[in-house]
């Protein structure tokens, strides 16, 4: 039985690592997920590549295109997760745009998620108003549709947070994913607004890449999400990225422990 999202947040501040499935190929993704677990990652977000990822910066856009070019499909990603489940029970979630999920068929998609122990999904182009698309079907298969809160959410925070499942993904900055040297959003007041309505874990993502940033942000939330910084290592080292990813995740997780 795979461990849950709740377990990921049980041991202190969570380090959530994102990786694009199939970049540069699915065997590498499988290996890198295990490396990240070994390095201390608490939850892995597996990105389902999409031809047109409108919420991504250039690093993840290019990873998506490399993954699609290498022949990655939704079916092959499920097969990879199935193989992974022979080796680990760590909490896993998907990150993917709605169209590939919609096109696969919600019932079929979430049935397969349940079979291979995927416990949540982040869908960046599925806002609060549209989550009725698939939230109930996902829930019936034990999959949480994870809600996002942005710097512009303001009065929406209350509604979004009060219905949130799994954990809340707090977007640190305006714009798209990608490494940022500075995060200017007043995260503390967003977190305060969230805490008024829910006690489910809140993790912050977008732009985080250094241990110092991670430690600073983790002080006011339950975990940090890092994507582009990891994907950039994959882009640089290709199929030889394992040790580099391990080292990076170990340092980042270390910063959350201290």
């Amino acid at each position: 039985m795979a461990r849950s999202i709740k377990d990921a947040f049980a041991g202190g501040k969570a380090f959530i690592a994102f990786i694009t499935a199939g970049d540069p190929n699915l065997a590498a993704t499988e290996e890198y997920i295990l490396e990240m677990e070994r390095a201390g990652a608490d939850l892995i977000e597996i990105g389902i590549p999409f031809s047109d990822p409108i919420a991504e910066g250039v690093v993840i856009q290019e990873a998506d295109l490399r993954a699609l070019k290498s022949g990655t499909t939704t079916d092959k990603i499920f097969d990879m997760v199935g193989r992974l489940r022979q080796k680990t029970d760590m909490p896993l979630v998907f990150m993917g745009y709605l169209n590939p999920v919609f096109h696969y068929g919600y019932e079929r998609f979430f049935t397969r998620c349940e079979e291979c122990g995927i416990s949540g999904i982040i869908i960046p182009d599925l806002p609060y108003e549209e989550k009725g698309e698939c939230e109930a079907i996902a829930a019936a298969h034990g999959v949480d549709v994870i809600s996002m809160i942005a710097p512009t959410s303001e009065s929406r925070i209350r509604a979004i947070a009060s219905e949130a499942r799994g954990f809340l993904y707090v977007v640190s900055s305006m714009g798209v994913t990608g490494v940022r040297s500075e995060i200017k959003t007043d995260l503390a007041s967003i977190l305060t607004a969230i805490r008024k309505v829910t006690d489910i874990p809140a993790a912050v993502g977008f732009g985080i890449n250094t241990p110092e940033q991670a430690a600073k942000i983790a002080a006011i939330c339950d975990g940090v999400i890092v994507g582009s910084a990891i994907v950039r290592i994959v882009a640089q080292y290709g199929t030889e990225a394992g040790p580099h990813i391990y080292e990076y995740v170990r340092r980042m997780k270390g910063a959350l422990r201290s």
């Binding site: 709605l98 599925l126 806002p127 609060y128 108003e129 942005a150 512009t152 929406r156 977007v171």
Partner: peptide, 12 residues
């Protein structure tokens, strides 16, 4: 139809 966009754009 609908509004399938990132949360960042919803209030706008």
């Amino acid at each position: 139809g609908g509004q399938y966009v990132p949360e960042t754009l919803m209030n706008e």
